[in-house]
Design a protein around this nucleic acid. Structure first.
Lengths: 193, 193
DNA sequence: CTAAACATGTAAAGCGTTACATGATTCG
DNA sequence: CGAATCATGTAACGCTTTACATGTTTAG
């Protein structure tokens, strides 16, 4: 259900075609909630059926067509309901730490690979999120820029502060994962001399 | 697919009935990978069909029955393949941080609730994981005790060190989430005087 | 003219969630 | 004899992944 609200979050700022939405998605909310286009297009159709958005068919050239979506009143309302309602936390289900719990049974080389890979993965994520923060602070973030134009100037600083705060949480978590994986590599070295 | 290997991890230590498995599951691997019994029983059947485990029907009293499962050679092999193979990391999909990214649009009271709840959730997880570490170190952990009896003494210290290490990663992550949520609460206070 | 970008989907399979469903045995 | 524990599932629904599928337009 989160995809729906992630899409509404973009659409509330202004109308977009499915394609534009999908592009903007992957370089904004997509850093927090991945979705491939094969999931976005059908979801847009379902949202339209549900009355949250409305799409208008446009022609492009001779035979080309595209659908421009905008959020309806119901859609805006649904977004605010979602953002204000208490979160439902799902149960723990963590593949990496499940593996880690049985690392003693792995071959040392495989264990080393696992931990090095874990550090690598989270370093990549860290870089992505860190550069999002940089783009937000430098005013280069395309989606945020559009959003800021839609709200009164007095609220802009607040909006920026919250965005940065959200990404900082991810950055801190990634750092914790990297520290942990590196400590694991040292542990491995100590236990397999 | 992880559930399958979590179950094999328990079964490789010795035979267990579905019920025993489910109980031990919830107080060991279940801290890292949640699964309800309605998922465990059918999965055991599928694993049996796949030849990874074998079940023997027992009677209990007059009409009672239960099925005792043990891992087959194929099952043990599948477990080792899994633990030694490179992890596939799934794409980011983080409901809490998605919400956080749009917290500026929430009512201040709802934002405060969200962050307080986030801290609460992760404090609960932290306590669970921390007490798992305590149980591992004090030798009270039932599943680990069984496992330790199945391996040579020389490897026991190593097995304990890895188990603790796995849970420490979760503990550190939970601490990072709590710090973040609390910083968010301070931020909220500053922005909504 | 050809590659890149624009544009939009369908289908099948797997995994997980939630709710429902039922009964036996043992302990106090 | 009643409650707790033992014991095992089914059914329906929804989300995600992956693979497949197809065509148009524009810029160089």
């Amino acid at each position: 259900m989160s995809l729906r609200y992630a899409l509404l979050a973009l659409l509330r700022v202004g109308p977009l075609s499915g394609y534009e939405l999908q592009k903007l998605f992957s370089e904004s909310v997509g850093h927090v909630w991945h979705a491939p286009d094969s999931q976005i297009y059908p979801e847009l159709r379902r949202m339209e059926t549900a009355g949250l958005i409305r799409g208008e068919e446009q022609t492009r050239g001779e035979r080309g067509r595209r659908r421009i979506y905008h959020a309806t009143e119901d859609g805006a309302e649904a977004f605010f309901e979602w953002i204000n309602e208490p979160m439902e936390y799902s149960r723990v289900r963590d593949p990496a730490h499940l593996r880690a719990a049985y690392l003693e049974s792995a071959e040392p080389e495989a264990a080393r690979e696992f931990l090095a890979d874990h550090a690598r993965q989270h370093t990549e994520l860290l870089d992505r999120w860190q550069s999002e923060i940089d783009r937000i602070l430098s005013g280069e973030h395309p989606m945020l820029q559009r959003r800021l134009l839609a709200i009164p100037e007095s609220e802009r600083e607040r909006a920026i502060a919250f965005k940065v705060f959200a990404y900082e949480g991810l950055v801190e978590r990634a750092k914790a994962e990297i520290r942990w994986a590196k400590r694991g590599l040292r542990l491995l070295g100590d236990l397999n001399p």
